[in-house]
Amino acid sequence: MNNQTNKFNLQLLNVSDEFKSTDLKIVKKNVWQSKFVGLSDVDGKLAANYEITTSVFIDASDVRNKVSVTSDKYDVDSSDLSFEPADGTSSTLTDEDEVLAQAEGWGLFQEKGEFQVQAITEIGTFSQDADVHEFIKAGAESGSLLHNKVKEILFFHNQAEYQAIFW
C-alpha cells in the first residue's frame, strides 16, 4: 500500500549550535517549498528541522530518492537525515477557515469540479473576483495562514486558478 503525501518533516542530525537556516540547501527538484522551523535536541544531538512540501504526491518510502539535501558547511551523511511524512495538502478549507473567508468577503468554491476563489458579491467587500485574487495573493505574501492554505490547495487542485492569482 502506498503512503503518498506531499509534506515531510526533514531532520538533519549533528549540526553545530551555530547552524543557520541558510547552511542547508534543499535541491528544488520536486520541492515546492521548504521552511526552516528551528533546532532541537534529539538524544543529545543537535538537529536542524525543516518542513518540506513537494510539488507532487510521492510515496513516503521514496522521498530520499526525490529530494536532495546538500550543504557547503556540513557533510550531509544520509544516516544523519530523517524524513517523516506529515499531514499532506488538504483539498478543502475547515469550517473555521470558511467563516474567516466569508467575513473577508470571499470563498473557495468548486465549480465544475475545479476550485475557484470568488468574491461573495452580496457581502460587498469585493465587486469582482480579480479584486479577491489580489487580496489573497497579498495575504499569502504577508504570511497569512488562511491565504497560504488557499494557495497550496489551488497549486495542487487547480493550476489555472493558481497561476491566475499567484503569477
Rank of each mutant, 00 (worst) to 15 (best):
T5W: 06
N6V: 02
N9L: 10
N9C: 09
N9R: 13
L10T: 02
L10S: 02
L12D: 00
L13F: 08
S16L: 09
E18R: 14
F19C: 15
S21N: 12
S21W: 10
T22K: 15
T22Q: 10
L24C: 08
K25A: 10
K28G: 07
K29T: 13
N30D: 14
N30P: 08
V31N: 04
W32I: 05
K35H: 12
S40L: 12
V42F: 15
V42G: 06
G44C: 12
L46N: 11
A47Y: 08
A48N: 08
N49T: 07
N49V: 09
N49C: 14
Y50M: 01
I52K: 04
T54H: 02
F57Y: 14
F57H: 09
I58V: 15
I58T: 00
D59L: 10
A60S: 08
A60F: 08
A60C: 07
D62A: 06
D62Y: 07
V63T: 04
V63N: 00
R64L: 04
R64C: 06
K66I: 03
V67Q: 01
V67Y: 00
V67H: 01
S68A: 10
S71N: 04
K73R: 13
V76H: 04
V76R: 02
D77C: 05
D80E: 08
S82W: 02
S82R: 06
S82K: 05
F83T: 02
P85K: 03
A86N: 03
S90P: 10
S91H: 14
S91P: 01
T92R: 15
E96D: 13
E96S: 09
E98S: 12
E98M: 07
Q102K: 13
A103Y: 10
G105V: 02
G105L: 06
L108T: 01
L108G: 00
L108C: 04
G113I: 05
G113N: 14
G113D: 11
A119W: 08
A119G: 05
E122R: 14
G124S: 10
F126S: 07
S127Q: 13
Q128V: 11
V132Q: 00
H133Q: 15
H133R: 12
E134M: 11
I136T: 02
K137T: 07
A138Y: 11
A138E: 13
A140L: 09
E141K: 14
S142K: 15
G143N: 05
S144C: 11
K149R: 12
K151S: 03
E152D: 12
I153M: 08
L154Y: 04
L154F: 12
F155S: 05
F155G: 01
F156E: 03
F156S: 00
H157K: 12
H157R: 12
N158D: 15
E161N: 06
E161H: 05
Y162G: 03
Q163T: 15
Q163P: 02
A164C: 09
F166D: 00
W167R: 06
